[in-house]
Amino acid sequence: MAFEPKILAFSCNWCSYAAADLAGASRMQYPANLRIVRVMCSGMVHPNLVMEAFSKGADGVMVLGCHPGECHYLDGNIKAQARLAVVEEMLDAYGLEPERFRLAWCSSAEAERFVEVVTEMTEAVRGLGPNPFRPTRPEDAQEVA
């Protein structure tokens, strides 16, 4: 069985989560590797939370917010961008590739963009291989068996 990455996305309620819903309503298809954690604003995502996801074995983490200027809370997304810059440094310290983390913007109408971003990310992470911190999972055990 090929490596199936597990990708976590923190999606803001107003834009990217809505885009994900719309992708469903439009029956667009994307890889089933994504797990979305709904947040009210991308500005709510603490850098430690992202790092916690990596330490628990997420192969990729995304933070998806509204386009600059369209944040429901004035500029939470801009704050997210500034604050999450530190994640790259931390990844470096952990010895993880910067491509495992991505911050992207996506409006509530941009289902297509959502699908594109998620698909790209999945493929990119698939190419990187598993997160070395990834604990052994039942499905991996099956692989060996």
């Binding site: 819903d21 719309l22 469903g24 298809q29 089933a32």
Partner: peptide, 18 residues
């Protein structure tokens, strides 16, 4: 549904796992 069955129609097993 919106983030499950509808977007992984061709992959029922993966959709169930998700």
């Amino acid at each position: 549904r919106n983030q499950g069955s509808w977007v992984h129609q061709a992959e029922p097993e993966k959709a169930t796992e998700k």
